[in-house]
Amino acid sequence: MSHMIEVTNLRKAFGALQAVKQIDFYVEEGSLFAFLGPNGAGKSTTIDMISTQLKQDEGEVMINGFRLGQEDEQIRSSIGIVFQDSLLDPLLTVEENLYVRGSFYKLGRQELKAAIKVAAETANVTEFLNRPYGKLSGGQRRRADIARALINTPKVLFLDEPTTGLDPQTRKSVWEMILKLKREQGMTVFLTTHYMEEAVQADYVTIIDHGQVLAKGTPLELKKRYALDYLKITPARADELTELLQNEGIPFDKIDDMFRIKLDSTVDAIPIIDKCKGNITNIEVVNGTMDDVFINLTGAEVRS
Score class of each variant (00 low, 15 high):
Q246H: 08
Q212V: 13
L241N: 06
D239T: 11
Y195F: 14
K232P: 04
T218C: 04
L245I: 01
Q246K: 15
N247F: 02
T192N: 05
L231V: 12
I233Q: 01
V213M: 03
H210V: 11
R237P: 00
T242P: 00
L241A: 14
L214V: 05
L228E: 07
I250A: 00
L220K: 14
Q201D: 13
E221P: 06
V205F: 01
R225N: 12
T242Y: 00
K223L: 06
I255T: 13
E198Y: 08
D253V: 13
F252L: 01
T192I: 07
E240I: 07
G211D: 11
T192L: 08
Q246T: 14
P251T: 04
L220E: 15
A215I: 10
Y230T: 09
R225D: 08
V205I: 15
E248F: 01
E198P: 10
D229V: 03
V213F: 06
A238D: 13
E240A: 12
P219A: 06
Y230S: 11
I208T: 08
T234S: 10
K254R: 15
K224W: 01
A215D: 10
K216E: 15
I233D: 01
D253L: 14
A202I: 01
D229F: 04
L220A: 15
G217D: 12
Y230Q: 12
Q246A: 11
H194F: 05
Q212P: 05
A238L: 14
R237I: 09
R237W: 00
I250D: 00
V189L: 14
T242W: 00
P251L: 03
E198L: 08
L244V: 11
F252W: 07
V205K: 03
T206G: 02
Y195S: 03
L220M: 14
I208H: 09
K232N: 13
I207P: 03
T218Y: 05
T193W: 08
K254F: 04
T206V: 15
